[in-house]
Nucleic acid binder design. Structure first.
Length: 432
RNA sequence: GGUGGGAUGGCAGAGUGGUUGAAUGCACCGGUCUUGAAAACCGGCAUAGGUUAAUAGCCUAUCUAGGGUUCGAAUCCCUAUCCCACCGCCA
């Protein structure tokens, strides 16, 4: 949520910055509702003040036993009139305030000035590339064939059990998948100073509002068939960011790393990435999350992005860092770096991590504040998060980049300790 | 699933209809004292919104949340959520 005070006082600036994000903000509608709100609020509050003063006066009269009973009865009658007037004024105010809140809750975060212009991913800017793109002496297979070859990946049976966009892994492939998440967690905890945290995979609607997934993006979510407003998490960002919802915290920064499955309905992506494990309804992700003081959030974004990149360094997977342009930025983000890993079978880079600074946008929705020292006014914090990394896609990248001529897969050095010393996943004679 | 008991400011904990936004203690901040510190003493210390140049005043709201009763609600009534205890069931 944007700061309504800033929207009011810098309306033109806000409109043009939202334009960069390719969002048309209806400033006239905003102004008309806000002006109505102002008038109604002044009216409602003065009615309320009147009522309060009147009641206080009755109280003191009764206390001093200065009045006749009948007199008090008359006073009460008039009190009822005041009460009605106050209630009516309040009702009108509430309607208008709700309208204003609804309007504002669907407005995206303002992009940072460093964000490149552009309407879609074609305007994203590559900032750097790392690693050597492998030169295969044979035609590289894709991860679906490789996975089938080593007898560890089964898409068809997953479709039977559940439906499309699910996968089954077994044997050494399942082991590698687990090893990847263990490796990521351990690295972020021991090398980068994150605290490991385990959270619910089901969240309520308020948490999703806090991160900005609701009210606008309900279609992307799996909702439980329950009287309560429960949803499967689309990312650990939702439960972890909401840790301190409605709280005032006093020690910053806080850094968490969290491994969870993620559930996305992928509505609107029919026909895209239908083959294999690239786009699933369920996937594992190791998420990095920082809660920081406002002045430190830009440094924190660089740090966190670097933390995610170090996983790719250690796995020796070629990747590049992309700055998303205004039109490609997520709803809550002020700036986002995507990390894209090289996939030989597609001869291109594919997203494996997305690291964003949300500035105070989520904090305002969640009412998460901090107090630097006792006595100071609480201030909204900034939130930063990013994948470190998407486990399923990392597995895909390892399979494809480490494949051998015969279809076997070398195990990256750093994973071997997590895989009982295994150095190579061999072809399976029996298939799956 | 059943039966009871709870939810008050950063924490602990008073408060059952009338100047209570809320006693008291702890924590915290400022001061006095001290060579310095501690102790003691004095003072301050909730959040949000509105108005405003103002993080000054003033007004409004908030004692888990949402409704209700009343001229007036932390206090009475209803509902929800969460926590605790015991019973039942269970990985």
């Amino acid at each position: 949520m944007l700061d309504i005070k800033e929207v009011r006082s810098n309306l033109n600036d806000v409109v043009s910055r939202l334009n960069k994000k390719h969002y048309k903000f209806d400033s006239e509608l905003f102004l008309s509702i806000d002006q109505r709100r102002k008038a109604l609020q002044i009216e409602a509050e003065s009615r309320q003040a009147e009522r309060n003063a009147y009641s206080k006066n009755i109280g003191s009269l009764i206390h001093q036993a200065r009045s006749e009973k009948s007199e008090v009865e008359n006073l009460k009658k008039h009190g009822e009139v005041l009460k009605k007037a106050a209630q009516e004024a309040e009702e009108l105010l509430e309607q208008t305030q709700t309208q204003l809140e609804q309007l504002l809750s669907e407005v995206p975060n303002l992009p940072d000035s460093s964000v490149p212009d552009g309407s879609d991913e074609s305007s994203n800017i590559e900032l750097m590339q790392w690693g050597n793109i492998p030169n295969f002496t044979f035609t590289p297979r894709d991860h679906v064939d490789l996975g089938a070859g080593v007898g560890g990946l089964d898409i068809d049976r997953a479709a039977k059990i559940t439906g499309s966009r699910f996968a089954i892994m077994r044997g050494n492939l399942a082991l590698m998948h687990r090893a990847l998440s263990q490796f990521m967690l351990t690295t972020h905890v021991l090398d980068h100073g994150y605290e490991e945290i385990h959270v619910p995979y089901i969240v309520n609607d308020q948490s999703l509002f806090g991160t900005g997934n609701l009210p606008k993006f309900a279609d992307d979510l799996f909702k439980l068939n329950d009287e309560r407003e429960f949803y499967l998490i689309p990312t650990a960002e939702v439960p972890v960011t909401n840790l301190f919802r409605n709280e005032i915290i006093d020690d910053l920064p806080k850094k968490f790393v969290c491994h969870t499955p993620c559930f996305r309905s992928e509505a609107g992506s029919y026909g895209r990435d239908t083959r294999g494990m690239i786009r699933q309804h369920q996937f594992d992700k190791v998420e990095l999350m920082q809660f920081v003081e406002p002045v430190k959030s830009w440094d924190a974004l660089e740090e966190l992005t670097g933390n995610a990149e170090s996983i790719l360094h250690k796995l020796e997977l070629p990747f590049r860092r992309i700055a998303l342009c205004g039109g490609d930025l997520g709803f809550s983000s002020a700036k986002t770096y995507d990390l894209e890993v090289w996939l030989p079978s597609q001869n291109t880079f594919r997203e494996i991590s997305s690291c964003s600074n949300f500035t105070d946008f989520q904090a305002r929705r969640m009412k998460t504040r901090y107090r630097s020292k006792s006595g100071d006014r609480p201030e909204l914090i900034h939130t930063i998060n990013g994948s470190g990394l998407a486990v399923g896609r990392t597995l895909v990248a390892v399979l494809e980049n480490y494949q051998q001529n015969d279809g076997s897969i070398l195990v990256p050095d750093v994973l071997r300790p997590y895989m009982n010393g295994l150095t190579k996943i061999e072809l399976s004679k029996n298939g799956f």
